[in-house]
Amino acid sequence: MMGLRQLLSDPYISGIIWRGLAVGGLVSLCAALLGVTLVLKRFAMIGDGLSHVGFGAVALSALLGLGGEFQMEFALPIVTVASFLLLHLTVKGKLKGDAAIAVISSSAMAVGVIIYHANGGMTADACNSLFGSASVITLSQKDLLISTLLSVTVMVLFMLLYHRIFSATFDPVFAAASGVAGAGYQAVIALLTSVTVVVGMKMMGAVMISALIIFPALTAMRLCKSFKGVVLTAAGVSLVCFVVGFIVACVAGLPTGPCVVVVNLVALLAASFMNKR
């Protein structure tokens, strides 16, 4: 086990670490902002469903012989389509929302696993896309670029549409009567969530990316009494938990995703405890 200082003293390794911190931090921020409205609208499991679809898509791209660097481009349109489908099913009420998500996510998962097996067994690739990269070494300059673009987009949209997002989340019927188009706004949230899931999946893994969406919002909801407070706290909590989890992972030589999730869990438990007192 190497100390953090030793790791950072190597320019090659420190480059990788800074890149991982930047990508993960930005994705954590987006996930937290989107998570607040998803959790409040009872769409929390959409992130989870989408990441499983992402896993299936990555498996498919491996089958088609696409290199690892094109996985994101391949998965993104598939996940986006799935997000619109999930929203449509949830809103139209053909299937109950949670059931619809379970159907889509376990199907995508099953197809993904079958593809990997038919394609030469569960390789390290399959493990990586399920549980996140064992190291952050696989993150590329392109990941950094996309996550920067994504987070700037999410933050700018969130600030500009803040009052509309609040109104549509708190009371969609009233918001619609005020001229806030629910469908358009939901489509934007679904699209941004898809991008967040696909970008974050590489680091966090398909089964754990939804934690980034759900945990910070839940933690913040236990601490704050206003929507603004919840949004700002969720963003802050998410960022801090990511950085702490990431450093622990680097120093202890553990995979990043699970460490970040465990730190988020500790924060949630602490917030629940403070709320109880």
Binding site: L40, F166, S167, F170, A177, G179, K225, F227
Partner: peptide, 16 residues
Amino acid sequence: DFPASVEEVVRSGLLN
């Protein structure tokens, strides 16, 4: 169980 202050809820009427 929505975390919103009374002021935030009243203000959201302004969108109309």
